Deep mutational scan, measured.
Amino acid sequence: MSYSVTLTGPGPWGFRLQGGKDFNMPLTISRITPGSKAAQSQLSQGDLVVAIDGVNTDTMTHLEAQNKIKSASYNLSLTLQKS
């Protein structure tokens, strides 16, 4: 079951990613910084990142996902799936 979260910026957003197409692993939330915008939302460590700002992550490399997140200036919309 997927869910959506919109973090209001600017960054830093307070989470780290792992995985990506180049690692043959789905993009997942690997760490959440305590007290951060991510920590105050529904994000959980281990959640799968399905889309970033409406763009499906199935074919994204780790770097492409990082760049997509960094390019979000004020709002960052994520679609996630609980692990």
Rank of each mutant, 00 (worst) to 15 (best):
G14Q: 01
K68A: 15
P26E: 04
Q18I: 07
P26W: 02
R31H: 15
L7V: 03
S73D: 15
Q40N: 15
K68W: 06
A65N: 02
I29T: 02
A51Y: 07
S41Y: 09
S83K: 08
D22G: 06
K21D: 06
A39R: 04
L43D: 00
G35S: 08
D22Y: 04
G54P: 01
K70Y: 10
V5A: 05
M60E: 01
V55L: 12
G9L: 04
K82I: 15
P34L: 07
Q40S: 11
N56F: 10
N24W: 05
T57C: 09
E64F: 05
K21S: 11
N24T: 08
M60D: 04
Q81N: 12
E64R: 04
P10E: 13
M25S: 15
S77L: 11
V50Y: 06
M60C: 05
S77D: 09
V50T: 10
A72T: 15
S36P: 01
S36I: 02
N24S: 12
M25W: 06
D53L: 05
F15L: 11
S36F: 03
A72H: 12
M1V: 09
G20W: 01
W13C: 04
F23R: 14
S4P: 05
V5M: 03
T6W: 06
N75H: 13
V5G: 00
Y74N: 14
T28M: 08
V49Q: 00
N24H: 07
P10Y: 10
T33A: 09
S71M: 10
L78V: 05
L7Q: 00
L48Q: 13
K70Q: 11
P12V: 04
S83G: 08
Q45N: 08
K37L: 12
R16T: 15
V5K: 02
K82Q: 15
K70M: 11
V49W: 01
L17M: 12
R31C: 08
T61S: 13
Q40D: 12
F15W: 03
Q45D: 07
N75I: 10
H62Q: 12
G9E: 03
I52L: 06
N24P: 06
S44K: 13
N67Y: 12
A51M: 12
G20D: 03
S73T: 14
T59R: 09
S71C: 14
N75R: 14
T59M: 11
P12I: 04
M60S: 02
Q66W: 11
I29Y: 01
T59W: 08
G54E: 07
T61K: 06
L7T: 01
I52H: 00
Q40C: 11
Q66K: 14
D47Q: 05
W13D: 02
T79Q: 14
K21W: 07
I69T: 05
M1T: 10
S2Q: 06
A39H: 10
S41N: 11
S36D: 03
Q42P: 08
Y74A: 15
L76W: 01
W13E: 02
V50G: 03
V55H: 11
K68C: 09
M1G: 07
P10M: 10
Q18A: 11
D47P: 00
K70W: 08
S4G: 06
L7G: 00
Q18V: 11
T6Y: 08
K70R: 14
S30F: 07
Q81M: 14
G19Y: 03
K21A: 08
G9F: 05
T79S: 13
S30C: 08
I69Y: 03
Q18D: 12
L17F: 07
P26V: 02
S44H: 15
I69A: 05
M60V: 03
L48G: 06
Q18Y: 06
M25I: 09
V49F: 01
T57P: 03
I29Q: 01
T8S: 08
T59Y: 09
T8N: 06
S71K: 14
G54N: 07
L76I: 08
N67K: 14
G54L: 03
A51I: 05
P12W: 03
G14P: 02
L17T: 11
L48N: 11
H62D: 05
N67L: 08
W13I: 04
S44M: 11
Q66A: 15
L17S: 02
T8M: 15
Q40L: 12
G46Q: 04
S44F: 07
V5W: 02
P12D: 14
R16Q: 09
V55K: 11
L80K: 01
I69R: 01
G14C: 01
D58P: 03
L63K: 14
E64H: 06
D22V: 03
I29E: 00
T33E: 13
H62Y: 12
S41D: 04
A72N: 10
G20H: 02
P12F: 04
A39K: 04
G9K: 05
Q45E: 14
M60L: 10
P34R: 10
Q66E: 12
T57Q: 02
A72S: 11
G11E: 09
L76F: 04
K68M: 14
T28N: 07
L27H: 07
L63V: 12
R16H: 14
I32A: 01
A38P: 01
S41W: 07
G14E: 03
P10N: 11
E64I: 05
A51K: 12
Y74K: 15
L17R: 00
A65T: 04
V49A: 02
S36H: 03
Q66F: 14
S36V: 02
G54H: 06
V55D: 10
T61H: 05
I29L: 08
G14N: 03
V49P: 00
E64N: 06
A39C: 09
G20A: 02
T79F: 07
G35H: 07
L76H: 03
I52C: 01
T28L: 07
R16E: 15
H62M: 13
F15A: 02
Q40A: 12
A65D: 00
S77I: 12
Y3F: 11
S30P: 02
R16Y: 13
A39I: 04
M60P: 00
P26R: 04
Q81H: 07
T61C: 06
N56Y: 10
L17C: 08
S71E: 14
P26L: 02
M25A: 11
D53Q: 08
A51R: 09
L43H: 00
T79C: 12
P34A: 10
D53V: 01
V55A: 13
L80I: 09
Q42M: 08
L7D: 02
S44P: 03
L78Q: 00
K37R: 07
K70D: 12
T57D: 00
L7I: 07
L43V: 09
P12Q: 06
D47H: 04
A72Y: 09
S41G: 07
L7A: 00
Q81E: 14
I32E: 00
K37W: 11
V5P: 01
Q18L: 11
F15V: 08
Q81W: 07
P10V: 07
S77A: 13
S73F: 09
D58T: 14
Q18E: 14
Q81P: 02
S44G: 09
T61E: 05
R16V: 13
D22M: 04
G14A: 01
V49H: 01
V5H: 03
L78K: 01
W13S: 03
T79G: 10
L43G: 02
V50E: 11
N56T: 15
